[in-house]
């Protein structure tokens, strides 16, 4: 027996036109196979329609809110890791590029000589900067120098005090746990 197009019409989700519906009805009366399929599909559809919706355990939104901070922290850490890796990769690429460039444009002896020359120039430059500041200090009035030293000493004292306070606080209260942070 030819089951088409009746077999396809059985699974149509939209109502069939009257003529097709009548044809299907007549076919179903003489075809037990299609009738069985129709009954099966109607049963499945009924099961789908009446099935109860599953519900989460109580407190779902509270769990979501609690997990939000942890997820944020994880995301921040991931971003920091990605940034550091990207920067390190970029620096490595630049160094590699420079290395290749120098290797292609000059010999090893030239590179060594220019490295020594550059290092000497940097050292001489640093010494000259030091000498410049020393001569500048000699021309400043003595009151300015005292004020600078006073500000510098005050900042050192404040930093020391903050460090001592932090040590005292940690020794009294301990380091907050991972759960407390969340």
């Amino acid at each position: 027996m030819n089951h088409q197009p009746f077999n396809s019409w059985l699974y149509e989700d939209t109502p069939l036109p009257a003529a097709q519906a009548e044809e299907l009805k007549q076919h179903l009366q003489i075809c037990p196979d299609c009738r069985q399929q129709q009954e099966a599909w109607l049963n499945v559809r009924h099961m789908l329609r009446i099935a109860e919706a599953a519900r989460p355990q109580p407190g779902f939104s509270s769990r979501w809110q609690a997990g939000l901070e942890a997820r944020r922290l994880r995301q921040q850490r991931r971003q920091v890791r990605i940034t550091i890796l990207a920067l390190a990769g970029a620096v490595l690429l630049v160094l590699l590029g420079l290395l290749i460039y120098f290797a292609l444009t000059s010999s090893f002896a030239d590179l060594f000589a220019s490295m020594i020359g550059t290092s000497t120039q940097v050292a001489v430059g640093l010494v000259q900067i030091g000498e410049f500041f020393q001569s500048l200090l000699r021309f400043l009035p003595p009151g300015v120098m005292t004020a600078v030293w006073f500000i510098f000493a005050s900042w050192i004292c404040i930093l020391c005090l903050a460090w001592v306070l932090s040590v005292w606080r940690i020794s009294r209260k301990g380091v907050p746990s991972h759960e407390e942070l969340h």
Binding site: A53, A54, R55, P56, Q57, F60, S61, R63, W64, G67
Partner: peptide, 28 residues
């Protein structure tokens, strides 16, 4: 919004995955 839509989202995840704990994770 989480409170309002937790049931439909959880139900979809549960029907898709077939496990309550996996559905909870998926819904979250």
């Amino acid at each position: 919004l989480v409170e309002r839509y937790q049931n439909p989202v959880f139900n979809l995840c549960y029907r898709m995955l077939g496990d309550e704990f996996e559905a909870e994770d998926a819904a979250q």
